[in-house]
Structures are given as C-alpha cells and as structure tokens.
Design a protein around this nucleic acid. Sequence first.
DNA 1: TCGTCTGCCTAACGATCGTTCGTTTGGGAG
DNA 2: CTCCCAAACGAACGATCGTTAGGCAGACGA
Lengths: 204, 204
Amino acid sequence: MRTTPLVELTRRRAIEDVASELFREHGYAATSVRDIARALDMQGASLYAHVTSKEDVLWAIVDRTASRFEAAAAEVLDSTGAVPGQSDPAATLTRLVRAHVRVIAEDVEAAGVFVHEWRALGEERRAGVLSRRDTYERRFRDLIEEGMSSGDFALTDSSLAATAVLSALNGLPAWYDPAGRLTADRVADHFVEFTLGMLQGASR
Amino acid sequence: MRTTPLVELTRRRAIEDVASELFREHGYAATSVRDIARALDMQGASLYAHVTSKEDVLWAIVDRTASRFEAAAAEVLDSTGAVPGQSDPAATLTRLVRAHVRVIAEDVEAAGVFVHEWRALGEERRAGVLSRRDTYERRFRDLIEEGMSSGDFALTDSSLAATAVLSALNGLPAWYDPAGRLTADRVADHFVEFTLGMLQGASR
DNA sequence: TCGTCTGCCTAACGATCGTTCGTTTGGGAG
DNA sequence: CTCCCAAACGAACGATCGTTAGGCAGACGA
C-alpha cells in the first residue's frame, strides 16, 4: 500500500505525492503547475517556494523510484549467488520478481510515473534513466541466461524474454489497486508463476 | 512492416501518419499542432484545411487501430469454435496472439498511440475506447477460462492472466523495430511460446 | 480567357503555459 | 510585545497553445 503520510513530513514531499497522482492520471505534459497547486489548495506560483521547476518535481519522482527498484534488486542479488555453480536461477528470479512487484505496490502512483513519464525529462536526465533501465533489465536477462545454460529454462532469446517479463510487470501500475481484491503478495505469487511458466516453456 | 505509402494517398492520411510518429515519441499533449505541420513542411494553421481539431487526429488514429485489432480478433474467433466441445483453446489463443502481434507490427506507431494516448481523448470517446478494450480483453479471458476448464491451462485467475498476456504484448510498440533483427513472425513465435508457457504453468 | 476550387499562406485571437516578482501573513523565539 | 522568517499570495512576464479568418497562387474545366 502506498503511504500517504498521515502527518505531512515536508511540504516538498506532499507536492511530489500529489504530482505523482496527476502525472500518472493525465501525464506530465497534460498536468499544469496550477493543477498541482490546486490539489493542494494553493496558487501555482506558491509551489516555487518549494520547487525549482516542474521538471524538477518529475525528476524527483523518477529518480527516487528508480533508486527503489535498484536497491530492491541489489538486495536480492547481493544475498544470492555468491557461490558460483551453486546458484538457483529460478529461485533468484522468483525473489527478483517479488521485489519488483513490491516496489510497485508500495507506491503505484510513483511507479506509474516512472514507467511512462521519464520520456518527458530533459535530454541529459532521460539518457541517464534509460541507461539505468538497461542495467536493471540486464539483471533479469543475465539471470535468464544463467537458467538457460543450466537447463532450467527452455528458451532461445533471453533478451526478448526479459523484455516480455518486464513489460508484463510494468503493466501493473496501470491497473493495480492496493485497495482492490488482490493483495500485493497475491499478485506477486501469480506473476512468479507466470514468469516461471513463460521461461520453462510450453509443455506440449 | 508499416506502410508509409510511396504514393501519398490523401493529405489527411499523411497528417495522421506523421502525427502517429510524434504522438508516440513525445505523447499527445507534448506534441503541438505546429510540430505536426513542421514535419510536413507546412504552417500549423494549414492543417485545419484537412482536419477539424487536434483531438480529431488522435481519434482517427485510435479508432482506426482499435478497429484493426477488433477485426483481426473477429477473424480468428469467427472461423473457430463454431462447434462447441470441439474447440482447442491453446490453438485458438495461438492464432489470437499472432493476430495481435501482426496488427501491432503492421503499424507500430499507430499501435503505440492506441496503447498509451487514448487517455488524452475527451470523456465520451475515452469511455468508448475503454469499453472496446474491455471487450477485446474479454475475448482473451474467455479463451483462457475455456482452457482452464478443459484442463489445458493450469491457472487460478483468468483475469490476471489475460491482463499479464496483454501487458506483455502491448509492450511491443515501445521497443519493436520493423527494421531490426526480428521479423514480426519471429516475434509472434516467441510470444506464442511465452503465452502458452505462462498459461500452462511452471513445471516444478 | 475566365471563373472556380483546392491547398497553403500570413496574421491574429484569447487562453493557458511555466516562471518571476514584490508583498503580505501568521506563528514561534527572544 | 516585538521581531523574524518561512509560506503563500496576487499580478504580471513572455512564450506558446489550439484555432479562426481572409487572402493568394496555381491547376483545370468551360
């Protein structure tokens, strides 16, 4: 579940949270500074006491969310596979998928912005995000290749498989409702099943 | 492959094609009428000789693409399963997935716009698109449920599975390059494998 | 040769955009 | 009580937005 803090920690963070909702619902370009301000009962100009630019707000959301994905993946991968030849790709991938779902479910709004709106950043930041996404996707791809050569996975194109898995996962922010019928853990269960099924191949 | 016609059929269609590229790359809201015109070596105002509004262009792209998805699915489903109790859900789903990939690959730009930018439409049209998407997704879901009760698929949540499959498929416009290393048919092969694997479940 | 029609032009409209500015306000520390 | 400082205000900036209006050039049928 997302934590809209009961006690507002900082005004800055409140702005980012409200902006996450609006950016996710209408997109960055279609959301005006005055829209964000209105949701906080303020005047548009007043935001600039807390923020240096509109893009700055987007960047804060995207960067923070990217870091959360990176940290979650690092935690999974650093605690496993230290001993080569003794790794279990399916088990590690399971934990990686669960971590990914958890990061999304903990802040669906920010995750949705991260997935779709990073294109709106300036050239420099956009390139940075792109490279971080590549690095992240490679962790999936490497794990899949490991499973291919160990015989756990039956595939011929690890890159395509990684993209397909991440596409399915990144569809989550578009429909997942923390208050809906599925808890984040249940969703993660299903996606682990889907992922392993996908990678182990059709049985007929 | 997308068909940017060598002979420009109508000016109107040329506008839609150029708009598809720009809408997909920068989003509808971030693309100005003057941007579209510049790509055609025209003045922004000149577009209005061919078009009644900017949203009208978006609508034409979205509606046309939605219709292509619907027609492709109808062709698959109308030619199968006419005799109940004799259907093969996996085979039908295979054809449905192939049809979906084909529609995307035939016009990646328009498909990308359809997938992401329909939210920018006015309330009425947006609601219409949403309901057509629901109908389309239900065709996948129904087929999955058929496979569940026939024992072909090992799943507990057909709705989640349909969403996951379609999310993976709809990630295609974001990365697929018709001139790249994979033909549309090869991509379809892989996605059929992924889909069936997903639905038949992990084997361990 | 004339009129018409199509396709694009320039100019301009009001609205809204992101952002800057100088000012006001209200609560806490001395 | 007084001072201060962060937070929000209203007004305004130049730019750009989608769109309208009127005119001009060239192709074409009569």
